[in-house]
Amino acid sequence: MIQLFLLIGIVGIAAWLFVNRGAKQLAVRRLLLVAFTVFAVLAVLFPTLVTGVAHLVGVGRGADLLLYLTVVVLLGSLALQEARTKSAEVRTTYLARRIAIDESEPPVQYRERVLGDRSR
């Protein structure tokens, strides 16, 4: 029963990521997502296979291997998100500066407005 819930959760999350990422998502990210999804499904359906892979790479249990891989994926996701956030901040700063320059009052008009107010 737990396998069914885990499979539904894994496939649901993978589908949600595909739908919400949009057309700009790189093919490499999609391939990695597919590979992760296949690995997760195999881990749920065949837990002894994961334990066998864990023993091959020198980890005692399959659950430990899954934990280690999850930590690596999480850290990679955090690094990617940090890079995206910094890029968005740079773009936002550029756009704010560009709008401020475009909407600024020309110096001649400013002088006329300021000096005109003083002469009254």
Rank of each mutant, 00 (worst) to 15 (best):
T70E: 09
I10T: 10
V73Y: 07
L31A: 11
V19A: 11
L49M: 12
D117W: 01
G12W: 09
K24L: 09
Q81M: 12
R97T: 05
V71K: 04
F18N: 12
R84D: 05
L31T: 13
L67R: 04
K24I: 00
L45I: 02
K86Q: 12
L67C: 08
G12A: 15
I99A: 07
V50A: 02
V53I: 15
V73E: 10
L6N: 05
A54M: 08
N20Q: 14
V28I: 13
P107M: 04
P107W: 00
I99Q: 07
K24Q: 11
L32W: 14
Q25Y: 12
R29Y: 14
P106M: 04
Q81L: 12
A96G: 02
L17F: 13
A83I: 10
A83E: 13
A88L: 12
Q25N: 09
T70K: 00
S87H: 10
E82L: 14
R29F: 14
G9N: 09
P107T: 04
L45H: 04
R61G: 08
R120I: 14
V19R: 15
I101G: 00
G76F: 03
T85G: 00
L80A: 15
E105Y: 04
E89Y: 07
I8D: 06
L56H: 07
V50D: 01
T37P: 02
G22R: 09
G58K: 03
M1L: 08
G60T: 14
V71L: 13
L45E: 02
M1P: 09
R113D: 14
E105M: 15
R118Q: 04
A100V: 02
L32G: 15
V11H: 00
S104E: 11
V108T: 13
V38L: 15
S77I: 10
E89H: 07
R118L: 15
A14K: 06
D117M: 08
V28R: 11
G62V: 13
R97I: 12
G52C: 04
V50C: 02
D102G: 01
